[in-house]
Amino acid sequence: MTREGPADGRARGTSGRWGVRVVTRRADLSVSGLTVDLGSGPSRARPLENLSFTGGDGRLVVVCAPSGRGKTTLLSVLAGLLIPTQGSINFAGRELALSSRREMLQHRRDCVGLVFQSFNLIASLDAVENVMAPLLMTGVRQSVARRRAAELLSGMGLDHRLHHRPGSLSGGEQQRVAIARGVVGDPPLFLADEPTAHLDQAQVGAVLTLLRSLVRPGRLVLVATHDARVVQVADDVVDLTAPC
């Protein structure tokens, strides 16, 4: 279900079934002339220079590059974790490059689902509690968040692992929990950093199927990887440097 947003491009939120914000706008991404400098002085580096690309609503975009070519930097900027040095990032009508810290926090909370390279699940929380965390940050009641997280994990085939801590889950299971945490808030922008990096062949297939299933109207899924297998499920590919 895709609906056009208001003319001013601002999000119009409402409470959904789970108390989760439903963003009623197109998840279109436009990156133009993006340059990012990191550090200062002799240690200064420029991982991204004059990068431009677009990602359409309901698409799976794969950003492909070898290690050290700015994939994670790009995800950091798109997630609102890093302010670009130059250029424009427009997502769903909102200009991210000009956002204040508060607006970036709001962008992360309301618009972005993140999956990290090394899962980054919180070791003290069980699977359900890890998935609940983003909902709790947005003020969703604990019982509602718990139910939503449990259903989501069950849907991913983890109903027997709901109360296991990350340390007792396999790599593939941890990745599924991490993906569930990323999508539990129903974000219009889903970002995954090297989601197959720590998985074996069998697990990669399952995760790619899962990622593909996340694509729907009203959401843009963007995956950064150096894994050629991921490119096979992409709708669009952004090649940062050399061919993958």
């Binding site: 997630a79 974790l81 926090l105 709001q106 992360r108 909370r109 309301d110 972005v112 993140l114 990290f116 980054n120 919180i122 070791a123 003290s124 965390a133 983003p134 940050m137 947005t138 945490r181």
Partner: peptide, 15 residues
Amino acid sequence: RDVAVLKAIGAPSWR
């Protein structure tokens, strides 16, 4: 690392 993750998924620092 946990704090960084929670901040990255939108937790305000005061929380």
